[in-house]
């Protein structure tokens, strides 16, 4: 259908390129043939109604799901379908429902984020040579820098679970940044925040961009998205409806229709949302879905998944 990729004018080289990403769970197509490019120095927003497949798309990008079709490449290299290798390559993420290591301290959480950028193995840890101590010191210094950056330095020894909600979100970002990514994926970073906190998060995202890290962000808060993003893509029912600058997307009547509830073909009802969620819940990060090769694009948008996912 409409897959009008807008090539941004003048910005840097592509960091992330997703081409033809399709994700099916059993009979349900959650993401259909999505193209998306993020260039260096850019903040790109991904919007769409509930159940549009935004998080599923994120999971495809980060190797948590193996897309049924399509490839994801980072700086020109096709990414493997392993979550830890994606992070190693340079893509870090946060989660929609915060997933911190709740019983580790704030500092330890960020140190875990350093995992891919350090390589002291078991022997090194057991023998505690000078190299180990140096690496630990450096990791800690870097982690403290990030905690300063996110304003959590004073709470370094608190357990993550004891932080207030807004700070947990920040800690998740700090932890993701610790892996020194070239691209940061934020999944609803301001969900449940008050306006001041949202404002602070905005500042934080700009600051991250200014460090040369490209950002792809899912968000419901339109104000936030349109303030923040250089480019916005709108996902509806797993398909990319439109992509462009804030003005273009805001002015697109199909987007307005999708959000205001005027049925666009068949707007996803509550049941469909539930189905997507249920299918995702059952998906495993290893077992790929049945690799049917039927055309992805032309089919109707009301996928009635009769097939029981069990």
């Amino acid at each position: 259908m409409t897959t009008d990729t807008v090539t941004p004018a003048g910005t840097g080289t592509p960091v992330l390129h997703a081409s033809g990403v399709t994700m099916r769970f059993g009979g349900l197509t959650a993401v259909r043939n999505v193209e998306l490019t993020v260039n260096s120095g850019e903040i790109v927003g991904l919007i769409g109604p509930n159940g549009a497949g935004k998080t599923t798309f994120f999971n495809c990008l980060t190797g948590l799901y193996i897309p049924t079709e399509g490839t994801v490449s980072y700086k020109g290299k096709v990414l493997p379908h392993r979550s830890h290798l994606v992070t190693q390559a340079g893509i870090a993420r946060t989660f929609q429902n915060i997933r911190l290591f709740a019983n580790m301290t704030v500092l330890e959480n960020v140190l875990v984020g350093r995992h891919t950028r350090t390589k002291e193995g078991l022997w090194s840890a057991l023998l505690r040579g000078p190299g180990f101590k140096k690496a630990e010191r450096e990791s800690e210094a870097r982690a403290m820098e990030l905690l300063e950056f996110t304003g959590l330095a004073a709470k370094r020894d608190h357990l993550a679970r004891n932080l207030p909600y807004g700070e947990q979100r920040k800690l998740e970002i700090a932890r993701a940044l610790a892996s020194e990514p070239g691209l940061l994926l934020l999944d609803e970073p301001t969900a449940g925040m008050n306006p001041q906190e949202t404002r602070a998060t905005e500042e934080l995202v700009f600051a991250i961009r200014d460090q040369g890290i490209a950002v792809l962000v899912i968000e419901h808060d339109m104000r936030f998205i349109f303030n923040l993003c250089d480019r916005v893509a709108c996902l509806v029912q797993g398909e990319k409806l439109v992509e462009g600058t804030a003005e273009v997307v805001q002015g697109d009547e199909r987007v307005v229709a999708a959000y205001l509830g005027t049925p666009f073909e068949d707007a996803p009802g509550a049941e469909e949302v539930a189905e997507v969620e249920a299918a995702e819940a059952h998906a495993t990060d290893r077992a790929p879905g049945p690799d049917s090769t039927t055309g992805a694009t032309g089919t109707t948008s009301t996928t009635g998944p009769e097939g029981d996912p069990k």
Binding site: N59, Y65, H282, A283, T284, D285, R286, A287, K310
Partner: peptide
């Protein structure tokens, strides 16, 4: 690992 008839393997992601 999913067994002869089964489909579910790992945790819910």
């Amino acid at each position: 690992p999913q067994g002869l008839l089964g489909q579910r393997v790992a945790d819910r992601a």
